[in-house]
Structure formats: structure tokens, C-alpha cells
């Protein structure tokens, strides 16, 4: 669709061997972004599939969810692990915070589509406005994730009494608070490891996305794209940003809901 609004397709003037052709009717940049995203899908799929494989290799928690206590013998119930809210210490609010994070990311995806749509219309003011909202959403999401990680690492007031092999290869029984890569109060050590790697890798993508969005916002605001004659860069960064949202939809389902 973008070929009708952008002025980068010169193939009709130069002929088929003159360069500037667009295979699959998509510009070079968009095509490469799509194939990069495909490879990134495989990376994230690798993470989530390993999560599934490790999860079924542990017994699920048997009793009613409300009686859940952490143990490294079985896989934890996510709604009992992720149940905290900032500024509301000790209040049991299962999945509320992560639901809020999902809402923020989906909304920032919506404002991104609106920025791309404004780019098709060469409407600089709208592009700048919607990119700023998207940027705000991305930064807010990162802030939420930072809080989520801090809470996960520091743990609950009570902790959990676990028997495990510590870093000196000794079998110990002690109260564990929070989580690190070796042991955590919620479940088997691979539970925290997978949490850190999957949400961490996603957060890393969001961080890159925020940097790209800032560049697009700045360049749109100072008129680089207007001079270039098209807003295709907004479209390409938009593809990346939607992908980040797409991954979160899967992380939300497989890590927090199931």
C-alpha cells in the first residue's frame, strides 16, 4: 500500500535492470524488517517452547490455588506469584499489575498505528503527536517492568522455607526470600531463570524500540522525513513496535495466565 504514497519506486523509469525494483511490492527496508522479525519470532518461540518443555517436566501444583505455597518440588501458580501492586503493600491483587502492563503496551501499539496512518497522509503534526504517545507508553511499560523485577527479586515478607543445594554445593534448609538465578521462593530454580530470560529479553526489545521511537520522533519533529518526501521510517519502526507487542501477547498468555 505504501508504494502509492511514497516516492521511492523508480522502476518504471529505469526498466527492470535499472535497479530500484521492489520485489514482493515492498520496499527494501520493509522487506528486511519483516525477515528480521521472522528470525526474531524464532528466537522468542525458542524461549517460550523451552518454557513449555521445562514446565511439563515438573509436576503441577495440586491443591486449590488459594492455598498455594512456594516450593521447588512443583511448578508455581503464576497468579499467586504475580499478585503485588506498587504502593499497595500486602494487598493480594492477582495479575492486576501485569494486566495493566498489557493494557499500556496494547495502547502504545494503537498510537503507533495512528502514527503510521498519519505518516501515510504526510501529516507531520499528527505523526509527532502519536509518536510521542507511543514513546510515553513504551517508557511507562519499561518502568512497570523494572518495578515487577524489583519485587520479584526482593520477594515477599515471609519468604519460603526450602531445601536446596546452595552455591557451595551444600544441601541446606533455610528461608529463601525473593529470587536469583540459583534459588527462588516461588518454585523450581528454572522458574525464576525463565522469568528473567523471557521477560528480560522482551524488555531488551522494548528498550531498543524506545530508542528507535525517539529517533523517529526527533527526525519527524525536525522535518527530516518531510524533506525526504515520505514517512516510511515511521512505518518500519512501527512494524518493530507491533512485533514487541505481539511477543508480549504470547508472554502474557504462557507465562502469566497458564
Amino acid at each position: 500500500m505504501s508504494t502509492t504514497t511514497t516516492s521511492i519506486n523508480f522502476s518504471s523509469k529505469r526498466g527492470i535492470w535499472g535497479g530500484g525494483n521492489e520485489p514482493l511490492n515492498a520496499s527494501y527496508g520493509k522487506l528486511m524488517m519483516w525477515f528480521f522479525l521472522l528470525s526474531d519470532i524464532f528466537t522468542f518461540a525458542g524461549f517460550l517452547i523451552v518454557y513449555g518443555a521445562i514446565r511439563v517436566s515438573y509436576p503441577p501444583y495440586g491443591g486449590p490455588a488459594t492455598d498455594f505455597v512456594g516450593s521447588n518440588e512443583y511448578w508455581p501458580v503464576p497468579e499467586m506469584v504475580f499478585d503485588a501492586l506498587p504502593f499497595l503493600h500486602g494487598i493480594h491483587a492477582p495479575l492486576v499489575f501485569v494486566g495493566l502492563m498489557t493494557f499500556i503496551l496494547i495502547m502504545s501499539s494503537v498510537t503507533m498505528v495512528l502514527a503510521v496512518e498519519a505518516g501515510h497522509r504526510n501529516d507531520k503534526n499528527d505523526v509527532v503527536k502519536w509518536l510521542l504517545w507511543t514513546l510515553l507508553g513504551g517508557i511507562t511499560f519499561l518502568g512497570c517492568q523494572a518495578w515487577e523485577w524489583t519485587h520479584f527479586i526482593h520477594g515477599t515478607d515471609g519468604g519460603t522455607v526450602l531445601t536446596y543445594v546452595n552455591q557451595f554445593s551444600d544441601l541446606v534448609t533455610e528461608t529463601v526470600y525473593g529470587a536469583n538465578l540459583q534459588v527462588n521462593e516461588y518454585g523450581p530454580s528454572s522458574f525464576a531463570q525463565l522469568f528473567f530470560f523471557i521477560t528480560g529479553f522482551h524488555g531488551f526489545h522494548v528498550t531498543i524500540g524506545v530508542a528507535l521511537l525517539f529517533i523517529a520522533f526527533y527526525q519527524a519533529a525536525v522535518g527530516v522525513y518531510e524533506q525526504r518526501g515520505h514517512y516510511e521510517m515511521v512505518e518500519k519502526i512501527g512494524l518493530y513496535w507491533h512485533f514487541v507487542d505481539l511477543v508480549w501477547v504470547f508472554v502474557f498468555t504462557f507465562f502469566y495466565l497458564i
Binding site: A26, V110, V113, L246, V249
Partner: peptide, 16 residues
């Protein structure tokens, strides 16, 4: 919905 509508994959060439 995200891939087809937000990323406009629906509007790309079939082979893409």
C-alpha cells in the same frame, strides 16, 4: 489481528 491489521500484513503481496 496485530499482524494482519496493525502490521498491515494483509495488504502485502500474497507471496510475502
Amino acid at each position: 489481528y496485530i499482524m494482519m491489521e496493525f502490521m498491515h500484513l494483509k495488504e502485502e503481496a500474497k507471496i510475502l
